Computed example of a mutant assay.
Amino acid sequence: MPHGGHLFPDYIPDRKQTFPSVVKSNDINTQEIGRELAELITEKFKGRKPYIIINHLGRSKLDVNRPLKEGAESDGSNFPSDTQIAWSDYHTFLNNAVEEIEERFGRGLLIDIHGHGHPENYIELGYVLSSEVLTLPNDIINSDPKISDGSSIRSLYNRKQTTLSFAELLRGKTASLGGRLQSYGYETIPSHVHEYPLVNEKYFHGGYSVQKYGSRHGEQVIDAIQAELPRLLRLGNKEIRDQFVKDFAESLSWFVKEYYWEGGQGSKRLTMDMPERN
């Protein structure tokens, strides 16, 4: 959770508009949702806990989902600033978790939780594939290896390509994370219902962390998905948010059991029933 920090110390100056892409507003309630998700997922995996990495500084002070120079502005001195140290600490924790999972399991999944204010209120799942790529028909997406190779779930596809097409993993009704969330009634892009953003619809395809740590690079085996949550699910009434967190935890647990859990790789495959509620 990179953008849900609650600390705004006066001794750390606010970020300037040095870079055109500077955004200082927090993704409200993403830290809270992430913590609740971790608790529910731990229950579903009988005490096995996911790694949790949180940036506690508010986004007006630090953005860890940007390169160091952009996210942690310095005063130009030769000594690292507080924000540069915090940026480095965050990514050290993240890199250590990635390396440990690679060593212990040989595969894994990073979920980078964000919030957006786009009027369509879609859940936007980012695989580092642009809106233009998502508009391509499935046969082209499946036949062009550059598309799957450039995605942040390349490793997953390479493991499953004999049984599933890339388009199915990306937006299939029963095979994708988007399809799972859509089956609960949450409008999700990409999914079998919303395969791609329409003209003039905004869509976040995956930022710095998903691009850096996802399996699109070299021999990396950790996949990454950026989960952009709309205001409706983050700031709406508590009943809606609580139900969403439960459904999101179930969807993520299903996805992990289906594609990463040891029982999901062979005859002892673990599955969870598809939801019926719309």
Rank of each mutant, 00 (worst) to 15 (best):
D14Y: 09
E201S: 07
E276K: 12
H205M: 01
W261M: 07
S251P: 11
P275F: 06
T42S: 08
S143L: 06
N95K: 12
S165Q: 13
G214A: 07
T83G: 08
Q161P: 01
Y186P: 05
L181P: 12
Q243K: 13
F166D: 09
P119M: 03
L37M: 12
N78R: 14
E99N: 13
L164R: 13
S267D: 05
Q17E: 09
S148D: 01
R269D: 07
H3A: 10
E32W: 00
V98T: 05
F8D: 15
P13I: 01
S60C: 09
G150R: 03
T83S: 09
K69N: 02
K61Q: 07
E102G: 05
D247N: 15
T163Y: 09
D14L: 11
H118M: 06
H194A: 11
G236Q: 07
N29F: 14
S130N: 09
E32L: 01
V199Y: 01
K69I: 12
K268Q: 08
K246V: 08
D247I: 03
A227H: 12
L68K: 08
E70A: 11
I101G: 06
L156R: 04
I140V: 15
Y213K: 04
L7K: 14
F248D: 09
H217M: 12
I222R: 13
Q220S: 15
S77N: 12
I225H: 14
A86R: 14
F8G: 09
R107T: 12
Y186W: 05
V256N: 06
I54Q: 06
E258L: 11
L229H: 05
I101C: 04
P50I: 03
Y213Q: 05
L198A: 06
L40Y: 04
L110R: 07
T271I: 15
K246A: 13
H116L: 14
D139A: 13
H6M: 11
H114P: 06
G179V: 02
G218S: 14
L37H: 08
I28L: 07
L134R: 03
V23A: 10
T162N: 14
H192N: 10
G108S: 09
G108M: 08
D139P: 05
D63I: 11
Y259W: 01
E70M: 03
R48Q: 06
A38P: 01
S130K: 13
E102Y: 04
S21D: 10
V210M: 05
T42C: 01
V133L: 11
N96L: 09
E43N: 04
N78H: 12
S165Y: 10
Q84Y: 09
E99M: 04
V64K: 04
H194E: 03
N200H: 10
S155H: 05
F248R: 04
S191N: 04
L57W: 10
R216I: 14
F255G: 08
F244T: 08
K46P: 00
N142V: 03
A167Y: 01
G47K: 00
